[in-house]
């Protein structure tokens, strides 16, 4: 259960991969950070919104066969650690791909999917997942 307020706050990052860029050292963060851990107080007020391109590479992955309750009925599915082309890392589900074909080093691109729902009567939560990138 995520709760609509939390989901709503995170819409820019979940829909459009809006992270932040430290305008002091240039490091890009996702999810967004208010302060750069490298530049600390020097970065205060100098973090800018930064939209990731949505392309990256699988660095590691796992196949979920015993899912948490909110994903019951959807297994097996793959969760991957992805290094985005901008250098930051994030985790996401890999879809539209045979599980046997997923491999470390695979190029992926973000797509827009339903992530979860609050039971049969609650809200739907949408956001990014990843699919194999076109050659």
């Amino acid at each position: 259960m995520m709760g609509v307020a939390r989901f709503w706050r995170e819409i820019p990052q979940r829909y459009n991969l809006i992270g932040t860029k430290c305008s002091v050292c240039g490091t890009i963060y996702f999810p967004p950070r208010a302060i750069c851990p490298n530049c600390r107080r020097k970065s205060a007020g100098k973090m800018e919104d930064y939209k990731l391109k949505g392309t990256g590479t699988v660095e590691s992955f796992t196949i979920i066969r015993v899912p948490p309750p909110e994903f019951e009925g959807k297994s097996p599915y793959a969760i991957a650690l992805i290094k985005m082309d901008e250098g930051c890392h994030l985790t996401g589900q890999i879809v539209d791909c045979n599980l046997e074909d997923i491999h470390i080093g695979m190029k992926v691109e973000a797509c827009f999917r339903r992530i979860q729902e609050d039971g049969k009567r609650g809200a739907f939560y949408y956001g990014y997942k990843f699919r194999k990138a076109k050659e």
Binding site: K74, Q93, V95, D96, C111, F112, R113, R114, I115, F124, Y126, K129
Partner: peptide, 16 residues
């Protein structure tokens, strides 16, 4: 459709 695809997700893909 995939199990995580619906009218909203397909519309977004087409719109983008």
């Amino acid at each position: 459709p995939g199990m995580d695809e619906d009218t909203a997700t397909i519309s977004v893909e087409a719109a983008r």
